[in-house]
Nucleic acid binder design. Structure first.
Length: 300
DNA sequence: AACAGGGTCAACCGCTTCAGG
DNA sequence: TCCTGAAGCGGTTGACCCTGT
């Protein structure tokens, strides 16, 4: 509770059923407008903003209350966020029964989850930070400060070393490790349709040499790295699918687009919905990361 | 059973845009 | 053209619930 200029008490906090009823009656009588008159008429001790928000988010007809986002809705949100950015009201207009608040909450939950996975200090991916810093000094202050990675198992030690050095491609010390590094950046976002770039991501694209001597050597190197990561055996095929797909092309085309258009978001269709090479898009929603085996994120 | 951590959701805040005087 | 209040929007916060330890 707080006092307003005119000494009328403004109520804050959760709405009661009685207040909802008063608000509903008001809207039924006058329509969803003139929100501030609800208080001036003495109907409710709430601000117009508060009344409007309550109506829009909870009392409006045809809202999907207490109903989780379907796979299709998730896919739409991810796709539209890539197109429109954080225009939650715009995105919500494509989803009947969903409010901008719903979409916003859904997205922030996803972001938090992803950030937590990628920012895990125990991730060996952070081992490449020093190398990246050396290549791009201007980047140093923008990067999160990682703890020294811990490689507890022989598998992890092997994975860490192989991600920057590959026996079958000795000269290919760049490419795969940088891709892993970019994927681990907190602000890096990859959706089924686009890559979002920021000031920390873009300079790193320059370090990816997907066309250096030839693409297949980098691909082989990346493949080698993934093979040595400690996934469950049954997950290796899925992971290796990344290397066999246009995974590298995505980064290569992204870099080219940055050079040509000076843009911060690259749209490229839905390459990751077709990882199995069949063009499959069964409507399953989720970002590129959800196409990966679950134990991949356990490892990260 | 108690606790911690994460997820979800409702609501508030501050800023911008719009419309009317 | 400027001012003011209303409406709209995105970011943030905090309470509550659930789950794992």
């Amino acid at each position: 509770m707080e006092r307003h200029r005119d000494e009328q008490v403004i109520k804050k906090g959760p709405w009661t059923a009685e207040e909802d009823e008063v608000l509903m009656n008001f809207v039924n009588k006058y329509g969803p407008k003139d929100w501030s008159s609800i208080r001036s008429m003495g109907l409710l001790p709430r601000t117009g903003k508060s009344c409007r928000l309550r109506w829009v988010n909870k009392l409006r007809p045809n809202l999907k209350i207490g109903c989780k986002f379907s796979a299709e809705e998730e896919r739409v949100v991810i796709d539209l966020q890539a197109r429109f950015g954080n225009k939650w009201a715009t995105i919500a207009s494509y989803l009947p029964g969903r409010t901008d608040n719903d979409v916003k909450n859904f997205w922030s939950t996803r972001q938090k989850r992803l950030a937590r996975i990628l920012q895990s200090p125990s991730s060996p991916l952070t081992s490449n930070l020093e190398k990246i810093k050396g290549k791009s000094p201007a980047l140093v202050h923008e990067m999160p400060t990682p703890k020294a990675p811990e490689f507890n198992t022989p598998q992890m030690k092997e994975a860490a070393s192989s991600s920057s050095k590959c026996q079958s491609c000795p000269s290919s010390s760049m490419g795969n490790s940088e891709i892993l590094q970019i994927m681990s950046l907190p602000n890096f976002m990859m959706t089924p349709n686009s890559i979002n770039l920021d000031s920390t991501t873009m300079p790193l694209l320059d370090t990816i040499e997907t066309d250096h001597h030839n693409k297949s050597s980098t691909q082989t190197s990346l493949q080698h790295s993934f093979t040595h990561l400690p996934f469950l055996p049954e997950s290796h095929n899925s992971v290796l699918g990344l290397c066999e797909s246009n995974f590298l092309d995505v980064f290569a085309s992204t870099r080219q687009a940055v050079e040509l258009e000076n843009v911060s978001q690259i749209n490229f269709g839905s390459p990751f919905l077709e990882l199995d090479g069949t063009g499959r898009n069964d409507g399953r929603a989720d970002s590129f990361f959800d196409e990966l085996p679950a134990d991949m994120f356990d490892y990260l």
